[in-house]
Simulated scan of single mutants.
Amino acid sequence: MKSLKYYEKNRHATWLELFFDLIFVVAIGKVTHILGDVHQGHFEHEQLWTFLLLFVPLWWLWSSHTIYSNRFDTDSNPHRLATLFIMLLLIVLSALIGEKPEVNYPLVIACYFGIRVIISIMYISSRSKLDGRGEFASRLGFALLVSAVVTISSVLFDPPMRYLVAYFGIFLDVLLPVFVGSILKPLPAHTEHLVERLGLLTLILLGESVISLSAGLSNIQWDRYNVMTAITGFIMICSIWWIYFESFYLLSNNESNMTGHALIYSHLFLFMGLALLANLIRHAILNDIAIRDFQIMSIIGMALFFIGKQYGYFIAVPKIRKYILQNTLIVLSLGGLVIFMPRVEYILVGLTATMICYVFLNFRYRGIFINRP
């Protein structure tokens, strides 16, 4: 049996993990596309709920596999085969995703169940990989099987009860690693590896934002507003990259015994914020959205992005908590002001300016840490 990659010096994401991320983004792209259309300038309530109901389970599939790999990956043939089969189910699942989740619901939930079962078996089989803490892997694996059974049992019910049952099982899935970990004390998260995985996925999702920007520029009638919006959209994406990765080294250098849950769970909000902002850039270019909807989704997207980005730092780096609270309050307050501008193009410019403002605000605590790479 191969040894755990957890103990390798200078550990990095494996080629298989990078491949897994690409497949995952295909599925996330299908979900994000649900917000790509508006109806007479407005998002429909069913459209927004569908986005939320599909986004959370997909995020958890990626997160749960990442949590497992962070501690128990051996890059062995069984691990590779299990991960590749998960990727196959993700492809099938992404092909079934649409704006009407009830149409293919049994097949979608079956794919989700299959992935959860594979991850559970991976946990259970990892018991022998650790001497003192193998019980954590075994118990968590069996607990996750129970929550997976709860989720698939939702096919026995009609809407909306089936969604309540399915999400009850999903929330059990999300909370079980925390509860089991608090009792059995698993290995601390491999911080450098976890931060790298999150950063790589964020980078790929930013690439999806560029694709959304490019798609919005196809077959449009060019005018000064389109040009301004396209340039502003790209500057916003660059600003998001700068905000996310400028202080990334603070997480990588963190030496506490983190479980990693703060980083994993906060990125749900960050990823959702990125999805909303990417769609808003596209709608601003097409000018096909009512300004009221644009205002609401803009402030929600900004809030989700900054809350998701900041919470992990707030937990992991206590030295900068004061700056985190101040900077976040300033940028969200500015964002709340600029959304009242008279055109969606101007609002996008204002939101981009607030992000650039945040970049400069971050310079205030750079001197606190001397050993920056």
Rank of each mutant, 00 (worst) to 15 (best):
L286G: 07
F245D: 06
Y323C: 00
S266Y: 14
E44D: 10
E8D: 10
I300V: 10
S147T: 12
V146H: 07
K129V: 00
L84A: 08
N10D: 05
G216W: 07
V210S: 08
Y313M: 00
S212T: 04
Q310W: 08
E102T: 09
H79A: 02
Y249M: 09
L61S: 06
I97P: 08
Y163C: 06
L175V: 12
L201P: 00
T202L: 12
Q326S: 10
R366T: 15
L18P: 00
K100L: 11
R366M: 10
Y265W: 15
D223C: 00
E255P: 00
I91M: 14
Y6E: 03
Y244S: 04
Y249Q: 12
V359N: 12
E208Y: 07
A230R: 01
G169Q: 09
S64L: 13
S94L: 04
S266E: 10
T259Y: 15
T14S: 09
A13E: 01
Q310G: 02
F20R: 03
I315A: 01
V31K: 09
Y105H: 07
D131Y: 12
N253C: 01
F294D: 08
W15Y: 12
I307N: 01
Y68T: 00
W60P: 00
F245C: 03
L107C: 06
G41A: 12
E135K: 13
I118M: 11
G169C: 10
T50Q: 02
V31N: 07
I281V: 02
S128Q: 09
F20C: 02
L172G: 11
S3V: 04
L175W: 14
A148T: 02
W15D: 04
I220G: 05
L22S: 07
S212E: 03
E46R: 14
V25I: 14
I291A: 10
W241R: 10
R71H: 08
S128V: 01
S256L: 08
Y323I: 00
A166W: 05
G141H: 08
G273H: 12
V117F: 15
S3R: 09
W222Q: 04
A316L: 10
L84M: 04
P106A: 06
V108K: 14
L81E: 02
I34F: 04
R343G: 10
M228L: 01
D131M: 08
F136W: 12
F168M: 14
F55N: 05
S153G: 06
L61F: 05
Q47H: 08
Y105V: 03
I235R: 01
H12I: 08
F248N: 14
M1R: 11
D158K: 15
M302N: 02
S126K: 03
I320W: 05
P342N: 06
S138F: 15
L35S: 05
G181E: 04
F179M: 15
T32N: 14
A95S: 06
I67T: 06
T191D: 01
Y311T: 11
R282E: 03
A353M: 11
E208R: 09
D288E: 02
E345P: 00
N279F: 08
F306H: 15
T354Y: 05
F51D: 01
S247A: 14
A303R: 11
G216I: 03
L145G: 10
N257W: 13
K5I: 02
M272D: 03
V155T: 13
P78L: 11
W15M: 11
H65Q: 13
G132F: 11
L276C: 01
N254R: 11
